[in-house]
Simulated assay, not measured.
Amino acid sequence: MLKPLATALLLAAPLCSVAQQILPLYPGPVPNATSYQMKEISVVKDGRVQYYQKVSRPTLTVFLPPKEKNARTGVVIFPGGGYVSESYEGEGVKIAETFVRQGIAAFVVKYRLPSDSIMVDKSIGPLQDAQQAIRTVRENAGKWGLDRIGIMGFSAGGHLASTLATHYRESLIGDVAGISLRPDFQILIYPVISMSETLSHKGSRTALLGQKPAPELIERFSNEWHVNHDTPPAYITHTGDDRVVDVDNTLAFYEALRHHHVPAEVHLYPKGDHGFVLKLPTDEWMQPIFLWMRTNKWL
């Protein structure tokens, strides 16, 4: 069992109002790590971390609903930021707090950002952390009262979530002792899906794969090419006028899901550009997600 890096009483944590624990993601050495200790950068406003950069020590922040409201469902959240930063507050903590109000446990991952300085192979570092995150939640499911565990990702965090959803059979964190790395469902918000030349968000691709990635790396991390009949059901939302991550990423992933008969619900909005949910109250724009979860009996 992991020991908490920090424990706080409900409503008393300085980082976020309902977080119960901040856990180191790995109980021992971080895999695929060099000896270099990069200094982490955080941007704080009103006592809450808004963004992280240069992450080399991954953590899992735990948000649990009161026992009497527990829906026995958890969601592991991956904030976005082009694989160069993490929008920890807007695409992490606020989302987790909204899930908790619905009786859903939430777990915000501060994952390692790809760097040749701190990783032997930077292309797999974030995915290792994503796999370890769902492993940790599954290992603690009994203690936290969970029957179903899904994932959620924003922008590049959406790429990380969809990579986990399509590459869960290949453990990059060693022996998982029979624990499934497959999420029960995936929620993708204006996601980067592809690393192909025509679809990819170039900044995310360069950060993860380098300036001139080999064709096999592009293929490996273009998730629309790795959907199969066992890929978890998906909820995806995007805007048609997204000038950062082309909506064709969502359309390509949906097409692959549909052709493999994977249940998927897509909400497309004509306007709003990238990060449109950050301009809206979370309780408002997340209502269709809660309805989708209830329809599928995850709530």
Rank of each mutant, 00 (worst) to 15 (best):
E91I: 11
F290V: 03
L9I: 05
A12E: 14
D230G: 04
R220S: 04
F78R: 00
M293S: 07
Q186V: 14
R258M: 10
L23M: 14
V266T: 14
T34R: 12
P14S: 07
N249K: 04
P14Q: 10
P4F: 04
G145D: 09
E91C: 14
I95M: 09
Q287Y: 15
N249F: 01
R220Q: 04
D147S: 08
A214L: 08
T237F: 08
L217E: 05
V76G: 00
K110W: 02
V247H: 13
F78I: 00
K143Q: 11
T166L: 02
N140S: 10
V266L: 15
I236F: 02
D246M: 04
R205I: 05
L199G: 02
Y168L: 04
S87A: 13
P79Q: 08
S222T: 04
R220C: 02
T206H: 12
C16N: 10
Q21W: 13
G125E: 15
K39I: 13
Y111V: 05
K279G: 08
I124N: 08
R294K: 06
L280S: 09
M119Q: 10
G178E: 14
P65S: 03
L15W: 08
N70S: 10
K212I: 13
H274P: 00
G81H: 12
H274D: 00
P29A: 04
D241S: 11
N249C: 07
S85W: 15
L60E: 15
W225L: 07
E91K: 11
H267G: 04
W285P: 07
P183L: 01
V55Y: 03
I179L: 11
Y254K: 08
V55D: 02
P27I: 01
T237W: 07
H259A: 09
V62G: 06
Y254P: 13
Q37R: 03
T295I: 06
G81E: 09
K3H: 10
K94A: 09
Y168W: 06
S42P: 14
V43F: 05
N228H: 01
T239V: 01
D283S: 15
Q211E: 14
A130M: 06
S35I: 07
Q50K: 08
W298T: 01
R101S: 12
A96W: 03
I193D: 01
V49Y: 01
Y26P: 08
W292Q: 15
V75F: 00
I179R: 07
N140W: 01
A130E: 15
L5C: 11
T282V: 10
I289P: 03
V62K: 05
T237I: 07
V93P: 09
K143W: 07
P215D: 12
G90N: 10
P270A: 09
S17V: 08
V277E: 08
E265T: 11
L280H: 09
K110P: 02
A106I: 00
K271V: 12
L268K: 05
L208Q: 05
L209T: 11
L2G: 13
T34H: 06
L172K: 05
G157R: 10
F221S: 15
P4S: 01
